[in-house]
Simulated scan of single mutants.
Amino acid sequence: MDFLPIIQLLVPYHARLFLKTKGLQVWLLQKNRNVNPFDLTVQLWPRNIYLGIGCRRGTTLESIETLVLPKLKELGIDLRTIVGVASVDLKKDEAGLLNFAAKYNWEISFFTAEELQNAAGEFSSSDFVKSVVGVSNVCERSAVLAANNGSIISSKCSLNGVTLAVAEADIVLDFEKLS
Rank of each mutant, 00 (worst) to 15 (best):
L4Q: 12
L4R: 11
P5N: 15
P5C: 06
I7W: 12
V11H: 08
Y13M: 03
Y13L: 02
R16V: 06
F18M: 12
K20M: 10
T21F: 15
K22L: 08
G23V: 03
Q25V: 11
W27G: 11
W27N: 09
L28P: 08
L28Y: 12
L29H: 10
Q30R: 10
K31I: 00
R33K: 09
R33W: 07
L40M: 09
L44K: 11
N48G: 04
I49T: 10
Y50T: 00
I53N: 01
I53W: 04
G54V: 00
C55Q: 07
T60W: 10
L61Y: 07
S63K: 15
T66C: 06
T66A: 15
L67Q: 05
L67V: 05
V68P: 07
L69A: 04
L69D: 09
L75Y: 08
G76Q: 04
I77E: 05
I77D: 09
L79G: 04
S87F: 04
K91T: 03
E94A: 05
E94G: 05
A95S: 12
G96P: 15
L97C: 07
N99D: 15
F100V: 03
N105Q: 07
E107L: 01
E107G: 02
F110K: 02
T112Q: 04
A113M: 07
A113N: 12
E114W: 09
E114V: 05
E114Y: 10
E115A: 04
N118G: 05
N118Y: 06
A119S: 12
A119E: 03
A120Q: 11
G121P: 06
E122F: 08
E122I: 06
S124Q: 05
S125P: 05
D127L: 02
F128I: 01
F128V: 01
V132E: 09
V133R: 06
V133G: 01
G134A: 03
V135S: 03
V135F: 12
S136E: 05
N137I: 00
V138F: 06
C139M: 00
S142L: 02
A146E: 02
A147I: 01
G150T: 01
I152W: 07
I153A: 02
I153T: 06
S154R: 09
C157D: 13
C157M: 03
S158K: 15
V162K: 03
T163R: 04
T163Q: 04
T163H: 05
A165P: 11
V166A: 01
A167K: 01
A167N: 03
I171P: 13
V172W: 15
V172D: 14
F175L: 15
E176A: 13
K177S: 14
K177F: 11
L178E: 13
